[in-house]
C-alpha cells in the first residue's frame, strides 16, 4: 500500500465518524461550534498520533497476552498529557469540551488503530495512519461544527454570517442535542447516496 493511500484511507474512505460510525459520542457532543469540533479533533489526533507512534515502536516487545492493557496505558498517558495541556493553555475550550477530553481514552477509534494497525506496522506507516485517521476525525467534527454553528448560532468561528438579523434568531435547534443527531443523520444519508458508491 502506498504511503499516500495509508494517509488518505483514514482521512476519507474509512473516515471514523462519517463512514465507520465510531467515535460518535465526542463527534456529536463537541460539534456545537467549529472551534469545539476542531479542538476536539486535534486533541484526539494528538493522542492517536503519539499512541500509534509509541505502540509501533514497542510492537516487538509487547507480550501478546497483555497488549490491550498496555495499549490502554499508553493511550491514557497521552490523554492525561493533552488533558493537562488544554487545562493550562486553552481553559475556555477545555471547559466547553468537558468530560469528553479524558474520555478520548475510550474512543474505540484509537484503541482500534493501535490494535489493527500500529501494533503490526512500521513507525512511519503508523504515524501516517494516525495522522490520517485523526485528521479525518477532525474533518468530520469540523464539518459538523460548521453546519451547526452557522445554522444554530448564525456565526462561523464567532463571526456573523447571513447578516445580523439571522444572528438574532438563528435555528437554535441545531446547537441543541436533537440538532446534532439530525445533522449527522443527514450527513450520513448524503454520504450513502452520493459518496459511498464512488469510493467503492
Amino acid at each position: 500500500m502506498s504511503k499516500w493511500r495509508i494517509f488518505t484511507r483514514g482521512l476519507v474512505r474509512d473516515n471514523a465518524v462519517l463512514v465507520l460510525m465510531i467515535g460518535l459520542c465526542p463527534a456529536l457532543a463537541t460539534s456545537g461550534t467549529v472551534r469545539d469540533g476542531f479542538g476536539m479533533g486535534l486533541a484526539a489526533t494528538f493522542v492517536l498520533l503519539f499512541s500509534n507512534l509509541i505502540i509501533s515502536l514497542l510492537r516487538k516487545n509487547i507480550p501478546n497476552e497483555v497488549r490491550i492493557p498496555i495499549f490502554i496505558l499508553v493511550i491514557s498517558t497521552f490523554v492525561t498529557i493533552i488533558d493537562y495541556f488544554m487545562q493550562a493553555f486553552q481553559p475556555d475550550l477545555y471547559r466547553a469540551l468537558g468530560v469528553f477530553v479524558p474520555l478520548i481514552v475510550v474512543n474505540c477509534m484509537i484503541l482500534g488503530r493501535a490494535e489493527a494497525f500500529a501494533s503490526k506496522n512500521s513507525v512511519f506507516d503508523a504515524i501516517l495512519d494516525g495522522l490520517g485517521v485523526g485528521l479525518g476525525f477532525t474533518l468530520a467534527l469540523t464539518i459538523m461544527g460548521t453546519v451547526r454553528e452557522i445554522l444554530g448560532n448564525g456565526t462561523f468561528l464567532g463571526i456573523p454570517v447571513f447578516g445580523e438579523s439571522f444572528k438574532k434568531s438563528p435555528v437554535i435547534f441545531m446547537v441543541l442535542s436533537p440538532g446534532a443527531f439530525l445533522i449527522i443523520g443527514i450527513l450520513k444519508a448524503l454520504i450513502n447516496k452520493y459518496v459511498r458508491k464512488e469510493i467503492r
Binding site: G179, F181, L182, K188, N192
Partner: peptide
Amino acid sequence: NPSLKGYPISFIAASLMALAFL
C-alpha cells in the same frame, strides 16, 4: 429509502426522540 436505511434513519429517529425529551 435505501440511502436512509440503517444509521441515518436511526440518527433522525434519535433526533426526534431527543426533541421530545426536551
